[in-house]
C-alpha cells in the first residue's frame, strides 16, 4: 500500500484537474472580475460604495430584500411545519405520496409556477372571483405587482426547502422520548414546546437559513409578481446592468449580496456538523 500511495496522490490531482480548471475559468474568474469592477469602474476607488450608501433607492431595495426574505421564511416555516409533522405521522404510503407532491412542485419549472400564480392572482383571476362570489370582498384584491404577490409566490416556491430537511429531522426523533415526557407527567402542550420543538430545532434552523439565503437571491419570481416599488437586490443588480450599463454600481451591490450569502452559508455549515465526504474514513 505504501508503494502506491505517492502515485495515488497524483491520480487525485489528475481526476480533479478538469473540474477545478473548469470552475476556475468559468466561475471563479468571472466572479472575481465582477467583484473587482466595483472598485475600478468608472475610476479606481470606493466611490461606488459611497454612492450606494448615499442613494435612498438602494436603501429601500435593501430593506425590501430583507423584508421579503424574513416574511417568506416565516410563512414557509408556518406552512412547512404542520406538513412535515403530518408526513411523519401518516402511514408510509401516504407520507410518500405527499413527499412526491413536494418533489413535483420543487422540480417543476420555476417560470411555469410563477406564471400560474400570475394568472391565479390577477384581478380577474379565479381567487378574486371566488372570494367575490362567496361575498367576502366586493372589489377584487390587488394581489399581483405588489408585495403580496411576491410573498405568496416565493413562499409557495420555498415550502419544499423547509419540508425536506425538517421532515428528515422529525422522522429521526425517537417517539419514545416524547412518550417518556408524557409518562413523567408533562401535558401535551409541554411535550410539544419543551421536547418536540427543541428536537426539531436542527431541521427548522437549517431549513429556515436555506430559505432565507435563497430568498435574498431570487430574481424571477419578484421580477414577475412584484411591482416597481418593491424591487429587491437581484433585480436592482440586473437593472443597473441592462438599463443603465452601470457595472460599477451593479458590482458593488453584488459584492454585498455575496457577502451576506457567504456569511449565512458559513453559519449553515456550522450547524450541519457531519461532512458529506470526510465521514467515511473507515478504510
Amino acid at each position: 500500500m505504501l508503494i502506491i500511495s505517492s502515485r495515488k496522490k497524483w491520480n487525485n490531482i489528475t481526476l480533479l484537474f478538469p473540474i477545478i480548471l473548469f470552475l476556475f475559468l468559468f466561475f471563479l474568474m468571472p466572479l472575481a472580475s465582477l467583484l473587482l469592477r466595483s472598485l475600478t469602474e468608472p475610476t479606481f476607488g470606493l466611490q461606488n460604495y459611497a454612492q450606494l450608501l448615499a442613494t435612498s433607492t438602494y436603501m429601500q431595495v435593501l430593506f425590501n430584500t430583507f423584508l421579503v426574505g424574513t416574511l417568506v421564511t416565516v410563512i414557509s416555516l408556518l406552512i412547512g411545519f404542520p406538513l412535515s409533522w403530518c408526513i411523519t405521522l401518516m402511514p408510509k404510503g401516504w407520507g410518500r405520496f405527499l413527499i412526491s407532491i413536494i418533489l413535483l412542485s420543487m422540480w417543476t419549472s420555476l417560470l411555469a409556477r410563477t406564471y400560474s400564480w400570475l394568472v391565479l392572482l390577477q384581478s380577474s383571476g379565479i381567487i378574486n372571483k371566488t372570494l367575490m362570489a362567496i361575498g367576502i370582498i366586493d372589489q377584487p384584491l390587488e394581489m399581483v405587482h405588489n408585495l403580496t404577490g411576491v410573498i405568496i409566490g416565493m413562499s409557495y416556491i420555498m415550502v419544499p426547502f423547509i419540508v425536506l430537511p425538517l421532515q428528515a429531522c422529525m422522522s429521526a426523533i425517537d417517539p419514545m422520548v416524547l412518550q417518556a415526557a408524557s409518562i413523567c407527567g408533562a401535558s401535551a402542550r409541554t411535550v410539544f414546546f419543551r421536547v418536540f420543538l427543541p428536537l426539531c430545532k436542527p431541521g427548522l434552523f437549517s431549513g429556515a437559513l436555506m430559505v432565507f439565503v435563497m430568498s435574498l437571491g431570487y430574481y424571477v419570481t419578484p421580477a414577475l409578481l412584484g411591482g416597481v416599488s418593491d424591487m429587491m437586490l437581484p433585480e436592482f443588480i440586473v437593472q443597473q446592468i441592462q438599463n443603465f450599463l452601470n457595472w460599477g454600481m451593479a458590482s458593488a451591490s453584488a459584492v454585498f449580496l455575496i457577502l451576506i450569502t457567504l456569511v449565512l452559508f458559513y453559519l449553515y455549515l456550522k450547524v450541519q456538523t457531519d461532512s458529506p465526504v470526510s465521514s467515511n474514513t473507515g478504510a
Partner: peptide, 12 residues
C-alpha cells in the same frame, strides 16, 4: 451563490 450573481459575472 445567488444565480443572479453567477449570471451577471459570466455575462460580463
Amino acid at each position: 451563490v445567488p444565480v443572479v450573481i453567477i449570471a451577471v459575472a459570466v455575462y460580463g
